[in-house]
């Protein structure tokens, strides 16, 4: 029986879709069967980030409305045979699916997959509630910015009322240099605001944008620091204890010489 993990953030643009795609990639590379489900109906993007946009035939709404079977709608990743995508519909809106339908769908997916990763839409309205309905675990993505933190806190507040979740936090777009200079919040400061279990710190990495341009997954590029950190995050989700090395690296000699 698989585990359903919903990836959410409240605020848009903090990295839900990128994190879903790359945690899926890492888990699949580590030998698990993974399906990434895009619930952002009407504004789908997970297909694009995973480089599978040309293969979309059927979608989540087609499955729910029984125009297609689950296996017809699933898209297998070319390079990673254990990674699948269930795309969202682009021509409908969030009201096309409700909580019960999502729970029934995910119960079926749990039989075939070790991990069902749900990419939630931004906001805390209907679409968010639908994406949350089947979750065994929730990962909240935030950046160390005030707007993202405030919205993440609102999400934490909503989740606190439902104690069946285990609640995890990923800090995205972390800039080590700014943190060293005291110009960006440290992970400890973030955790003082959001009481969650920290499972990942993903550094700001220009490669993320370029990988998306090409429809490639950053987690498949082990030379990218963000890609390596997605792997560490995935291994922490699997229960491994991996230290957060990213924040301990001392400033380089050049940095110190020039007072950067």
């Amino acid at each position: 029986m698989g585990r359903v993990i919903t990836i959410t953030s409240g605020k848009g643009g903090v990295g839900k879709t990128t994190s879903t795609a790359n945690l899926g990639t890492a888990l699949a590379t580590l030998g698990h069967r993974v399906v990434c489900v895009d619930t952002d109906i009407g504004l789908r993007n997970l297909d694009l980030i995973m480089g599978l946009e040309d293969h979309v035939v059927y979608n989540l709404v087609d499955v729910v409305e029984e125009r297609a079977s689950i296996s017809q709608a699933l898209i297998r990743h070319r390079a990673l045979p254990d990674l699948f995508l269930l795309p969202a519909s682009q021509s409908r809106d969030k009201s096309a699916i409700d909580e019960l339908q999502m729970m029934i769908l995910c119960n079926k997916l749990k039989n075939d997959f070790d991990f069902v990763l749900i990419d939630s839409p931004a906001g805390i309205e209907h679409g968010f509630r639908v994406s949350l309905a089947p979750a065994d675990q929730v990962i909240i993505i935030t950046t160390p910015e005030v707007a993202a933190l405030r919205d993440a806190d609102r999400v934490v507040g909503i989740l606190e009322k439902k104690d069946r979740f285990s609640r995890c936090l990923v800090i995205n777009r972390y800039r080590r240099k700014m943190v060293q200079q005291g110009r960006m919040m440290t992970p400890e400061e973030v955790l003082e605001i959001l009481s969650c279990q920290l499972v990942g710190i993903i550094p700001e990495d220009e490669e993320v944008i370029n990988a998306a341009y090409e429809g490639k997954l950053i987690a498949m590029n082990q030379r990218s620091e963000a890609g390596r950190e997605f792997f560490k995050t995935a291994r922490r989700l699997l229960g491994e204890e991996i230290p957060f090395s990213i924040r301990d690296e001392p400033p380089s000699l050049l940095d110190r010489l020039f007072g950067r």
């Binding site: 005030v146 943190v179 110009r183 919040m185 440290t186 400061e189």
Partner: peptide, 15 residues
């Protein structure tokens, strides 16, 4: 105090 710690304090009170 750093800009980051001041931001944290501001946000914490607000939230």
């Amino acid at each position: 105090t750093t800009p980051a710690s001041r931001a944290k304090a501001r946000l914490k009170g607000l939230l």
